[in-house]
């Protein structure tokens, strides 16, 4: 919590608590990935190894949907590369939090980076707390939940039988929506956000799959915001 930033134990604890508050929002996705992995014939060990090392739900789901025997090594790798491309600008945006860390605390925290922990850390940063410990704590808490839910989904998937439209699946969208409220800085965010949404819808309407609507929308909105902020300077 100190002004210069860094990586504190208090930050880790705060992050873990924030991840815990999101439990309901995080859990359904892990269940789905566990069930899907079981469905395509991955063993529990293989499922947990994948979820533990990859820790990126959408890309895992896409890879599992094109799974085959023998495993599609190149296709699965490419799916992860393309779909997780959205995390590259996230890491860059976290620079103020990460700049005073190094070694395992830096590159290890980045290894666990996920959308939700990124968003919560940005909200922390804007509240004046620059702590890479928070990023690690939140990400690690989410990783633990992820592993538990993937395991439960794999083991009990057949018994649970959650239909695709079940209300519980709304929880992950709800989590992102709630975090979005914390990222709102005021009216100056309105135009970039509207443009981001509109461009994403346009890319989606053109039939582009993940991650292109997200990337196109995010960059359009951010460009508008940056253009507005830097206009008249220089």
């Amino acid at each position: 919590m100190d002004q210069r930033g860094g990586f504190t134990r208090a930050g880790v604890v705060r992050g873990l608590k924030a991840a815990l508050a999101l439990t309901l929002g995080l859990s359904p996705f892990g269940l789905v990935v566990g069930m899907t992995a079981d469905g395509v014939g991955l063993s529990l060990l293989e499922t947990l190894l994948m979820s533990g090392l990859v820790f990126a739900g959408t890309s895992q789901l896409v890879a599992l949907q094109l799974w085959s025997d023998p495993a599609p090594i190149l296709a699965a790798t490419l799916a992860c590369l393309v779909i997780n491309l959205r995390m590259a600008p996230m890491g860059a945006a976290l620079a103020p939090v990460l700049d005073r860390t190094r070694g395992i605390r830096l590159w290890g925290s980045l290894a666990l980076l996920v959308d939700n922990s990124f968003a919560l850390t940005i909200a922390e940063l804007r509240a004046g707390r620059r702590d890479a410990g928070f990023l690690f704590g939140a990400s690690f808490g989410m990783w633990v939940n992820w592993m538990a839910m993937c395991a439960i989904g794999h083991i009990f998937g057949n018994a649970l039988r959650l239909p695709a439209g079940h209300p519980i699946f709304f929880a992950s969208s709800a989590a992102v929506l709630a975090i979005l409220v914390q990222l709102w800085r005021g009216r100056s965010d309105l135009q970039p956000w509207l443009l981001a949404g509109a461009v994403a819808l346009m890319a989606h309407g053109l039939g582009l799959g993940a991650p292109w609507p997200v990337l196109a929308g995010a960059f359009a909105g951010a460009t508008l915001g940056a253009w507005r902020d830097t206009r008249g300077q220089a």
Partner: peptide, 21 residues
């Protein structure tokens, strides 16, 4: 500076673009 300004705006925009579709 322009890229730095973009990075300030990216977080919110990423999630709006994610949710809209």
């Amino acid at each position: 500076p322009f890229v730095q300004a973009m990075l300030q705006h990216l977080p919110g925009c990423i999630f709006v673009a994610f949710l809209a579709p």
